[in-house]
């Protein structure tokens, strides 16, 4: 529950071979128009530039603070920039530079969206993954072999002040159900598509597809 409407979740299905299928739910905005695409790349470039400048500032501060040569900066950016930077770094203290730099770096590396995926390999198993909050860390993944999977179903649960749908996997010898897309908890329409695909992939198409669903013909 946020004051703003939650970001739009998109489902991307990738099926390279007939026995492999990957569902990715993401809150990453996908621009459609040309200005949108240009804006996206521009913002990426600006991010990278700000990140690079911050690193250079930190490096310069370190060199000047320990009275080492900053000649390499002169070669890259020119003598004018070098002298200006060195002068500026002499006036700025570490106690201001360091927190600002950390904040800027954190903002630059922060991933503005969450991406969660479910990859199914027929006969092998499935892998769930949740992207990390920064670009620096790899996503959290979990592989469950087919022999361990007992069931995959959609159910509802209380979460905060609301009731949400979730896609759960029952794993053999485990007390708790593994929830697919645990942070995003997509809406029912997305979950149903993934559920159908996952059952078709794991148990073959038409293999007890409607067994544990609560599907109806109303909508």
């Amino acid at each position: 529950m946020g004051l703003k409407s939650p970001p739009v979740q998109t489902l991307t299905t990738l099926q390279p071979t007939s026995s492999t299928i990957s569902y990715t739910v993401s809150t990453r905005p996908v621009p459609k128009t040309l200005p949108g695409v240009v804006g996206l790349y521009l913002s990426l470039f600006v991010r990278a530039a700000i990140g690079a400048i911050t690193v250079v500032v930190l490096w310069t501060k370190w060199r000047t603070a320990s009275d080492k040569s900053t000649a390499s900066l002169g070669w890259v950016a020119g003598a004018v920039v070098e002298t200006w930077m060195v002068k500026a770094m002499h006036t700025c203290k570490w106690r201001y530079v360091a927190p600002c730099a950390i904040l800027i770096l954190w903002l630059v590396f922060r991933r503005g969206y969450t991406e969660e995926s479910l990859t199914l390999l027929r006969g092998l198993g499935l892998q769930t993954s949740t992207s990390s909050s920064t670009y620096l860390r790899t996503p959290v993944t979990r592989f469950i072999p087919t022999t361990e999977i007992q069931d995959i179903f959609i159910h509802e649960a209380f979460k905060g002040f609301e009731v949400r749908f979730y896609l759960g996997i029952v794993v053999k010898n485990e007390k708790d159900v593994v929830v697919v897309f645990p942070t995003l908890l997509p809406r029912r329409a997305i979950l149903e598509e993934v559920w159908r695909g996952a059952r078709a992939c794991l148990y073959g198409s038409g293999g007890g597809g409607e067994k544990s669903n609560k599907g109806d013909t109303r909508e």
């Binding site: 529950m1 004051l3 409407s5 599907g215 109806d216 109303r218």
Partner: peptide, 17 residues
Amino acid sequence: VAPRTHIDIARNWPKKE
């Protein structure tokens, strides 16, 4: 804060129909 459009409608038990 939590508009109606953001709440999924639960499916009915199929037997009912």
